[in-house]
């Protein structure tokens, strides 16, 4: 990165701020900073307002931990939704994917997934909030919609262990072959689960 003596301090600070963003290297950070420098003031103001707004106005829904502007979020406040089913997802983007599938129950966003190798344990994700939430007895079923990866399965198993005693039904998304898959290349675990979950053709 350019040294502080030749670059004016405000530019240097902007470069460093960009550089801290994920996926932005030193050269990209410089290009972005100089782009802002050349851009009209409104553009810079719009960017800074957007940055601050997202921190000021977005919060976590106190019920489902989804990111939201109003609390409780629109999903939790919607009376037409099925309040007896809670779909547990790893991150807010997964919620949008499930929503596209036509699911109309409630959600719970964990904001992470257990990752033993990186030291992410149950206390680092929003598991506790789910347990607390289940105590009101409204929810009858918890759908574990974590990714079908090692970490996602570990998370699903942990949650099942923690809420099992509460008497709530815990279900897991089916695992099997994705559309357009090749059997030849499918791994044994996926194929075995696909066989287990086979359906009669009707």
């Amino acid at each position: 990165m350019a040294d502080g003596t030749s670059t004016p301090e405000p530019i240097q600070r902007l470069i460093e701020a960009f550089h801290r963003l994920p996926g932005v290297g030193p050269k990209s950070a410089q290009r972005l900073a100089y782009h802002i420098l050349r851009a009209p003031e409104q553009e810079a103001r719009a960017l800074s307002d957007a940055l601050l707004d997202v921190k000021r106005r977005i919060r976590l829904c106190s019920v489902c931990m989804n990111i939201t502007e109003q609390d409780p979020c629109t999903y939790c406040a919607d009376e037409r939704r099925d309040h007896t089913t809670i779909c547990v997802v790893e991150q807010a983007l997964d919620l949008l994917a499930i929503e596209r599938s036509g699911y109309r129950g409630l959600y719970h966003v964990l904001h992470g997934v257990l990752n033993p190798m990186d030291g992410v344990g149950p206390e680092d994700i929003r598991v506790r909030e789910l347990i607390v939430r289940l105590q009101d007895g409204v929810a009858q079923e918890v759908i574990m919609a974590t990714n079908p990866s090692l970490e996602g399965e570990a998370t699903a198993m942990l949650i099942q262990r923690l809420i099992g005693p509460a008497g709530v039904k815990v279900t897991r998304l089916a695992r099997g072959l994705p559309s357009g898959a090749d059997l030849e290349y499918t791994d044994d675990v996926t194929l075995a689960r696909a066989l287990e979950g086979r359906r009669e053709l009707v």
Binding site: R59, L60, S62, M65, H111, G112, E123, R128, E129
Partner: peptide
């Protein structure tokens, strides 16, 4: 599971999903 003392509402600081 320990109570980490986090308050649910109004807590904007959350850790990003790993990886």
């Amino acid at each position: 599971l320990r109570d980490t003392g986090r308050t649910a509402a109004g807590d904007v600081q959350w850790s990003p999903p790993s990886g």
